[in-house]
Amino acid sequence: MKALVYHGPFQVAVEEVPEPKLEAETDAIVQVELAAICGSDLHIYHGKIAGVLPGTVLGHEFVGRIVEKGPLVPFPLGERVVGSFQVACGDCPACRKGQYFACLKGGVFGFGLALGNLQGAQAERVRVPFARQSLFAIGDLPAEEAILAGDILTTAYGGVRPFLSPGMSVAVVGSGPVGLMAQMVAHALGAGQVYAIDPEETRLEKAAALGSLPVNPKAEDPVARVRKETQGLGVDLVVEAVGLTGRLPRAAAFSRRVSSG
């Protein structure tokens, strides 16, 4: 089958690789319908993730159809599913507490030795360990929508839900895909005013359509605007959704916590 294979920094190629095979009773093989390129894949491409060996198939965001499965996989053959970027066993102490990120047997597709050394999903087929916990049925939902649930939406949700109470004001710095979804999560969970801060007008238009207040730092001082809108208090919650590797200037200045000392 064809897959996108990593050969080192700035070196990837679509080439023939062996078909995945079932290795455990909890495995499933998924025929990939749609795969996405995550920003984390670009970190691998740039050589910034240690332990990704040459020959690794990349990709951890995918939608597809189950074509093979072990006897402990409850889905029927042919079921359309979205895969979680991360697999988890569901049985270890961490999983029993709902802390799937700390699963003793878990891993992330296409992320190398440190995270389970699983082959990725930018391929015609992918083996999914612990399929019962790691796949979710999507029925007839369009693949372009369902694929967002596997990683990007959960990233946004995880950055907002634990910290948000209804009525809280929120500033989301960055209105790219994660930032827009962070705003959607905030609105859905009952936030008060949500401020969308981004220099790109097309992104701010999308943010405004969600009900956020757009603020363009090219046109005005975003900190001053947020302070003005909140009577000098700042917001209750700041979500940084830019992903800079360096320092984000004055990000904390939006926060009520900073302004109140």
Rank of each mutant, 00 (worst) to 15 (best):
P177Q: 06
S165F: 11
T56K: 13
G107P: 00
V5E: 04
A137K: 14
L42I: 11
V226P: 05
L164R: 14
S84H: 15
P20D: 03
E19M: 15
A24V: 04
A208T: 12
D151Q: 07
M168Y: 04
V215W: 05
G174E: 06
V73I: 10
H187R: 14
A146S: 08
R65D: 00
E205T: 15
V160K: 14
L135I: 11
H46W: 11
M181S: 11
L72E: 15
R65C: 09
P93E: 01
G39E: 07
V239L: 05
P9M: 06
G234N: 13
Y157Q: 12
I152A: 00
E33G: 03
M168D: 13
Y6Q: 11
M1C: 07
L210S: 08
A253E: 13
L42A: 03
Q193H: 05
A207Y: 07
S40T: 15
E61S: 02
G261Q: 09
I37Y: 00
S134A: 04
E68C: 08
S260F: 01
A241L: 01
E144F: 01
P177F: 10
L53N: 09
G47R: 02
S255W: 00
T154G: 06
G107Y: 02
G51F: 12
K69G: 03
D41T: 10
L180K: 07
V128T: 06
R80D: 13
A146G: 14
G51V: 05
G139R: 09
Q122P: 02
L153T: 07
A13F: 13
S255C: 00
E61D: 07
R65K: 15
D221M: 10
A88F: 09
V172L: 10
A137C: 08
A50N: 04
D140K: 15
M184D: 00
L22E: 03
L213K: 12
A186E: 00
K2M: 12
Y45W: 14
Q133N: 15
E145M: 05
A224G: 06
V258D: 02
P249A: 10
V5L: 07
P166E: 13
L135A: 10
Q122F: 04
L180V: 07
C103G: 10
A196V: 09
L141E: 11
R257L: 02
G232C: 08
L148S: 01
Q122L: 06
G246R: 03
H60E: 04
G261M: 08
V235E: 09
P142V: 03
V239C: 01
S212T: 01
K48F: 08
Q119D: 05
E205C: 09
G90A: 08
E144L: 09
C95W: 02
G70N: 13
S260N: 04
G190W: 02
E19F: 15
E145D: 07
V128Y: 10
G39Y: 00
F136W: 08
Y157D: 09
F136N: 04
A188C: 03
G232M: 06
T230D: 10
R247K: 13
L164Y: 12
V82F: 07
D91W: 01
V73K: 02
L72W: 09
A28G: 02
A88R: 00
G78V: 14
G120R: 11
P142H: 07
V194W: 03
S165L: 11
A131G: 05
A224M: 06
